[in-house]
Computed example of a mutant assay.
Amino acid sequence: MIKDKIIYKGNPKESDLNRMNSETIDHTILKDTFSIPYAYIKKIENQKGKNYIKIFFAKDSEEELYINDDNIKSEIFEYIKNDHTDFIYSSELPSFVKYTKAQLFALVSITGIFIWSLYLAIQIESGIEYELVGGRKPGIAGVILIIANLGTFKIITGYLVLLAIAIFALIKKIKSRSMTEYLKR
């Protein structure tokens, strides 16, 4: 519900909804809802094919308004766009890299760990001994050394499994890329 430049999110009871209309609002109904004033909102996203409108507010907070009907979702977005003239409207297809940043980072990370641990595993299997020095907890090098001690076969098998999962997530994310409407300050 949107009233007085505030977006209310919640699940009111059916009996409470029946008592409410566009002119009068029983404010006791609103006490169980989460409210986001327009003044707090930094950005609003409406992506085609998704059943929610994403609202970014405060420092790093975000909230999703789930709406199952695409027509109603579009109407709500249009209402906010027309109701608040401080927002700048734009519509674009997100870039491949921007949209899949997390999946690409996962691919690069597991590949880097794989190469490093595989190199150490090959060295260990050829007779070279490695030792962790220092009294602190082992950092990333210690973790890589532990992985390297598993052996090349297990490292390759583990990498292929993680690579398959990362590629599956990347493909799924790419398929969900669609036009997105933005309202930004």
Rank of each mutant, 00 (worst) to 15 (best):
L104R: 14
L104P: 07
F105P: 02
F105E: 13
F105W: 02
A106E: 08
A106F: 06
A106K: 13
A106Q: 12
L107N: 02
L107W: 06
L107I: 11
L107F: 02
L107Q: 04
L107T: 09
L107G: 03
L107K: 03
V108G: 03
V108A: 13
S109M: 10
S109A: 06
I110T: 01
I110N: 00
I110S: 01
T111Y: 07
T111Q: 02
T111V: 01
G112N: 09
G112S: 07
G112A: 04
I113K: 11
I113Y: 07
I113G: 14
I113A: 14
F114C: 01
F114L: 09
F114P: 01
F114T: 01
F114A: 08
F114E: 06
I115Y: 07
I115Q: 00
I115E: 02
W116M: 11
W116R: 05
W116F: 15
W116I: 14
W116Y: 15
S117V: 02
S117W: 06
S117C: 08
S117R: 01
L118Q: 00
L118P: 05
L118N: 03
L118R: 12
Y119P: 01
Y119T: 09
Y119V: 12
Y119A: 01
Y119F: 14
Y119H: 04
Y119M: 08
A121K: 09
A121S: 15
A121Q: 06
I122T: 12
I122N: 03
Q123T: 10
Q123P: 00
Q123R: 13
Q123M: 10
Q123W: 00
I124T: 04
I124G: 00
I124S: 01
E125A: 07
E125K: 13
E125D: 11
E125R: 13
E125F: 04
E125I: 14
S126R: 15
S126L: 05
S126E: 07
S126Y: 06
S126N: 15
S126P: 06
S126V: 09
S126Q: 12
G127D: 03
G127H: 05
G127Q: 06
G127L: 11
I128D: 07
I128H: 00
I128L: 15
I128C: 06
I128M: 09
I128A: 08
E129G: 10
E129M: 07
E129T: 05
E129R: 05
Y130Q: 08
Y130S: 10
Y130R: 12
Y130I: 07
E131V: 07
E131F: 08
E131W: 00
E131A: 14
L132R: 04
L132T: 00
L132Q: 10
L132D: 02
L132H: 05
L132M: 09
V133M: 12
V133R: 15
V133E: 14
G134C: 08
G134D: 04
G134L: 12
G135M: 04
G135A: 04
G135Q: 10
G135C: 03
G135F: 01
G135R: 12
R136F: 10
R136H: 05
R136G: 08
R136N: 15
R136Y: 04
K137P: 05
K137V: 14
K137N: 15
